[in-house]
């Protein structure tokens, strides 16, 4: 059963918070363990799954791992997911010469192995891998601010990088499928900073291509864009995907009115505002509010608008799931 079938056939409203870090409170591991050790990912997800009985488990969301495989340097800390530092590519010649890595290179092997381990969990939960989207990956290779300017000033350079990023991601998705993933949440946040026309040309075209090559009934792709607004939606839907995950800037009720009933939308509680800065009672109230606003939409899955920050307290996630449970009673 693919993700869309699972959601549309569910008798109750499902929840899919992008949560790995709260599991650390249960296992005692650090963020630096999660991003280097597949067993630490399994332990955190197993602990969360046992606590909430979720039908989904997720590999960690680490948007530095693919860029590192290309050769980018990263900054690592105990408390945050690694960040890409510096610029690997500064001109067309470097872009032309850039070698495309293989799935399994550097730390990508940790994430492939995590999927294999997650498939062994009891209860056979739906296993999501996580990866970056093509434009967000290309932007990390060339510098995110610089990538924004290059989309207008040097489009050829960006397209050269996007071709290579798409080739890598296509193979990476195939490797996730071979490892047993049921789905992949593909994060494309940088594309949300572009105009709709830019998003179409620099993201959707490439996502559509890699999905055509790597996705099938056995592997659902959920495209995540935490920066997109409603005006970006038509350009995002050009990917032809059947599932999307949006952040707080998206008018999710408006978006639900613009997609076919068999297209799944997930989102979009503010991860910082709702899960870190609000007391649990407020988290419950905001979760209930969003569930009420989207009532009647079987194609909506409530979620955090992005991955939960490492300092999101477990009490917030408890409050979130309690509100979902109440709505299902």
């Amino acid at each position: 059963m693919n993700f869309n079938q699972l959601v549309l056939n569910s008798p109750r409203r499902l929840a899919l918070p992008i949560s790995m870090s709260p599991g650390l409170a249960l296992t005692g591991a650090k963020v630096s363990d999660i991003v280097t050790n597949s067993q630490a990912q399994l332990d955190a997800q197993a602990a969360l799954q046992q606590r909430y009985q979720s039908p989904f488990v997720l590999g960690a969301m680490d948007l530095s791992v693919e860029a590192e495989a290309f050769g980018c340097t990263i900054a690592v800390s105990d408390s945050e997911v690694p960040t890409v530092t510096g610029r690997l590519i500064t001109n067309q010649e470097q872009a032309d010469k850039l070698a495309v890595p293989q799935p399994g290179d550097r730390r990508t092997g940790v994430y492939l192995e995590a999927v294999r381990l997650l498939r062994q969990l009891p209860g056979q939960p739906f296993v999501f891998a996580g990866c970056i989207g093509p434009f967000s990956l290309a932007a990390r290779l060339v510098g995110v601010s610089e990538a924004m300017e290059l989309t207008i000033a040097e489009p050829e350079l960006m397209h050269t990088l996007l071709e290579k990023c798409t080739d890598f991601l296509t193979n990476y998705l195939k490797a996730f499928r071979a490892a047993g993933a049921h789905g992949v949440i593909m994060a494309e946040p940088a594309a949300g900073l572009l105009s709709p026309r830019g998003l179409s040309a620099y993201s959707s075209v490439y996502v559509k291509r890699l999905a055509a090559e790597a996705s099938d009934e056995a592997l659902s792709i959920v495209l995540h864009n935490c920066g997109a607004k409603l005006l970006h939606l038509p350009a995002i839907l050009e990917t032809g995907l059947k599932a999307y995950h949006f952040g707080a800037p998206m008018d999710i009720v408006g978006a639900l009115g613009k997609v076919a009933p068999d297209v799944i939308l997930c989102g979009n509680l503010d991860p910082a505002g709702v899960f870190v800065q609000s007391p649990p009672a407020e988290t419950t109230a905001k979760t209930a509010q969003l569930l009420a606003a989207t009532a009647g939409h079987r194609n909506f899955v409530i979620s955090s608008g992005c991955d939960l920050p490492p300092n999101a307290p477990l009490a917030s996630l408890d409050a979130f799931y309690a509100a979902v449970k109440t709505a299902n009673q």
Binding site: M148, E149, T151, A153, L193, L194, S195, G198
Partner: peptide, 14 residues
Amino acid sequence: CNEYFVPELLLAAR
């Protein structure tokens, strides 16, 4: 008012 986006803003600043 969403007529310009980040690329346009950064290029204008440059």
